[in-house]
């Protein structure tokens, strides 16, 4: 009963990283950074749905980018153009474009990079000035660089091992290159997000958490914030930097 989407394409774009384009209703998507919850198949081996962020969307078409981490995403990578797939979409809040920023920066780490692409598109449509910095472990992991170039002339790619672009993690590179900004939008590993918060920068961060349902029913992904607890699937995945709680 949840909606079926038609797979238009599903191909590897970096090491174990796949881009899947889906045909179906996208009219309910409100913000970049919202996600979908995908049923792998009717087999009970991969029992739970897989939450994956929407990388870009337009009328009746959306794209996701995912990495093979286990058997569920492995099976997803075997899906072919023409296959139907059961998806709950859109879920979560997504990024809210902050007006009146002088210059913002999009900061992405690994599989946290994809939702920033749609954000870049919308920032450009809003004629806002922004930089992009995206980080990956190594050269073979890099993706979306050329797509971001369509929306921003200022893009920095970094790799931890230095095999491509700048060497280091995104935060190190931001500091080394003295990239200045007054607002940021970030998605990536929790370590990266927490490091940004600790630096005192102001912005929005998209978190990841293991989910049961993805739509607010099970409380599986509750995340402690400064004021209260928030469900990453419902009141998240995007939190304001001012509400991020770091337990140390």
């Amino acid at each position: 009963m949840s909606e079926e989407y038609l797979i238009k394409s599903n191909q590897e774009i970096a090491y174990n990283v796949f881009q899947m384009t889906l045909i179906g209703d996208t009219s309910k998507i409100k913000n970049p950074g919202q996600f979908m919850n995908i049923k792998i198949d009717d087999n009970y081996e991969n029992f739970l749905r897989r939450p994956i962020s929407i990388s870009s969307y337009k009328e009746n078409e959306m794209t996701i980018i995912y990495k093979i981490f286990g058997t569920g995403t492995k099976k997803l990578s075997y899906k072919k153009s023409g296959d139907l797939i059961d998806i709950l979409c859109p879920l979560g809040n997504g990024f809210t474009i902050k007006k009146n920023t002088r210059k913002s920066i999009l900061i992405g780490g690994g599989v946290g990079v994809p939702p920033l692409l749609e954000l870049a598109k919308q920032l450009k449509n809003n004629k806002m000035d922004f930089d992009v910095i995206i980080g990956f472990p190594s050269h073979r992991d890099v993706f979306l660089e050329n797509e971001f170039k369509k929306f921003s002339e200022s893009i920095v790619v970094c790799t931890i091992d230095g095999s491509y672009g700048e060497k280091g993690n995104v935060l190190e590179v931001i500091k080394n290159k003295q990239i200045s900004f007054d607002y940021y939008y970030a998605c990536g590993p929790e370590k990266m997000l927490h490091a940004l918060v600790k630096e005192g920068y102001i912005g929005q961060l998209s978190f990841e958490e293991r989910m049961g349902c993805g739509f607010g029913a099970c409380m599986g992904c509750s995340h402690k914030t400064i004021q209260s607890y928030k469900r990453i699937c419902k009141e998240g995945p995007v939190l304001e930097s001012s509400e991020v709680y770091i337990d140390e």
């Binding site: 009970y44 081996e45 739970l48 958490e209 293991r210 409380m219 599986g220 509750s222």
Partner: peptide, 15 residues
């Protein structure tokens, strides 16, 4: 967290 784990034909929760 994590409070959710998957298993064959089921899941574990520790909400």
């Amino acid at each position: 967290n994590p409070r959710i784990a998957e298993t064959y034909a089921g899941m574990l929760n520790s909400i």
